[in-house]
Computed example of a mutant assay.
Amino acid sequence: MADTPEVVRLAAVGDIHCTKTSQGNLQPLFSKITESADVLLLCGDLTDYGLPEEAHVLVKELAAVKIPTIAVFGNHDYESGNPEAIEQILCDSGVTILNGDTCEVQGIGFAGVKGFAGGFGSKALGAWGEDIIKNFVHEAVNEALKLEAALAKLETPQRIAVLHYSPIQATVEGEPPEIFPFLGSSRLEEPLTRYGVTAAFHGHAHHGHLEGRTRSNIPVYNVSMPLLKKAFPDQPAFRLLEIPTTP
């Protein structure tokens, strides 16, 4: 398209954990993002306890954002059993929530899912034994299939994956090894490779690593706000990446 820019600036952050008392706390961050970026990606745990009241506070904070905003949910957004209400509140404010869905902004394609746990590589949990274990693995597989189906719909030259759980172990390292299986699933990596994703963003691992790469060399960015604050204490807590609209 004639009006498609050569480069799109993506700002990404996850784990903002908006509470009922967060009024005014996030506006400075969102104002800076609006000044710096063309698109905002929110990588899950938008709320702290998954309460509609928290979502209403977040909407007020997001009023400072004047650019397209794309989000996925995280585990915290499900805590109180109100994800549909939270989604409606955010969608009514103009946020695009992806849950196995896609959207295109300025020539860049975005596919998003929450993802799920299960572990990585040869240590990933298998669907064997009790039904509850099989159900757990089934959830991880379903999230990967949702991501794959979404990526398959995108026809843009550049594809971005927006997740909450990590698709690789490298970006969760720094957390206690005992909880690695609960921070992501390598089943999410396979669709990234199959569809040649340009980059993937996730949150959830507050003490992980900022960056890693899939086995096929796709960059993966951990944009958990607590991690960004620790790594860049003198900078606003978001990751900025420039994506050319053509490879």
Score class of each variant (00 low, 15 high):
residue 1 M to G: 15
residue 4 T to A: 09
residue 4 T to V: 15
residue 7 V to R: 07
residue 11 A to S: 05
residue 11 A to T: 11
residue 17 H to L: 09
residue 18 C to P: 02
residue 18 C to V: 09
residue 20 K to N: 09
residue 22 S to F: 10
residue 22 S to M: 10
residue 25 N to L: 15
residue 25 N to I: 14
residue 26 L to R: 00
residue 26 L to V: 05
residue 26 L to S: 00
residue 26 L to P: 03
residue 28 P to C: 11
residue 32 K to C: 08
residue 37 A to E: 06
residue 46 L to R: 06
residue 48 D to H: 14
residue 48 D to K: 10
residue 53 E to Y: 04
residue 59 V to E: 15
residue 60 K to P: 01
residue 62 L to F: 07
residue 64 A to Q: 13
residue 65 V to Y: 04
residue 66 K to V: 03
residue 68 P to L: 01
residue 72 V to M: 02
residue 74 G to Y: 10
residue 76 H to R: 12
residue 77 D to G: 01
residue 78 Y to V: 01
residue 78 Y to E: 00
residue 84 E to Y: 04
residue 85 A to G: 05
residue 85 A to K: 13
residue 87 E to C: 13
residue 87 E to H: 04
residue 88 Q to I: 11
residue 89 I to S: 04
residue 90 L to D: 07
residue 90 L to K: 01
residue 91 C to P: 00
residue 94 G to Y: 08
residue 95 V to L: 04
residue 95 V to W: 04
residue 96 T to P: 02
residue 98 L to W: 02
residue 99 N to T: 06
residue 102 T to V: 15
residue 104 E to Q: 08
residue 105 V to L: 08
residue 110 F to M: 01
residue 111 A to Q: 01
residue 116 F to H: 10
residue 120 F to E: 07
residue 122 S to V: 10
residue 122 S to R: 12
residue 126 G to W: 03
residue 127 A to W: 14
residue 134 K to Y: 06
residue 135 N to K: 15
residue 136 F to P: 03
residue 137 V to N: 01
residue 140 A to R: 00
residue 143 E to Y: 07
residue 148 E to Q: 15
residue 149 A to L: 05
residue 151 L to F: 09
residue 151 L to Q: 02
residue 152 A to T: 07
residue 153 K to L: 14
residue 155 E to R: 09
residue 159 R to N: 13
residue 161 A to V: 10
residue 161 A to I: 12
residue 162 V to R: 00
residue 163 L to C: 12
residue 165 Y to M: 04
residue 165 Y to D: 07
residue 166 S to F: 12
residue 167 P to V: 06
residue 167 P to D: 05
residue 169 Q to I: 15
residue 172 V to N: 03
residue 175 E to V: 05
residue 175 E to F: 14
residue 176 P to V: 05
residue 177 P to K: 11
residue 182 F to W: 12
residue 185 S to C: 13
residue 185 S to Y: 08
residue 186 S to H: 08
residue 188 L to I: 11
residue 189 E to I: 12
residue 189 E to S: 11
residue 189 E to R: 06
residue 190 E to C: 03
residue 191 P to G: 02
residue 193 T to P: 01
residue 195 Y to R: 13
residue 195 Y to C: 09
residue 196 G to T: 04
residue 198 T to F: 08
residue 199 A to L: 11
residue 199 A to R: 13
residue 200 A to T: 10
residue 200 A to R: 02
residue 202 H to L: 02
residue 202 H to D: 02
residue 203 G to A: 09
residue 205 A to Q: 10
residue 213 R to S: 11
residue 213 R to I: 08
residue 216 S to I: 10
residue 216 S to N: 14
residue 219 P to T: 00
residue 220 V to D: 05
residue 222 N to M: 05
residue 223 V to E: 00
residue 223 V to M: 01
residue 224 S to W: 04
residue 228 L to W: 00
residue 229 K to G: 06
residue 232 F to W: 13
residue 232 F to L: 07
residue 233 P to D: 09
residue 236 P to V: 06
residue 236 P to T: 09
residue 240 L to A: 05
residue 240 L to V: 07
residue 243 I to N: 01
residue 244 P to H: 05
residue 245 T to M: 06
residue 245 T to W: 04
residue 247 P to E: 11
residue 247 P to F: 11
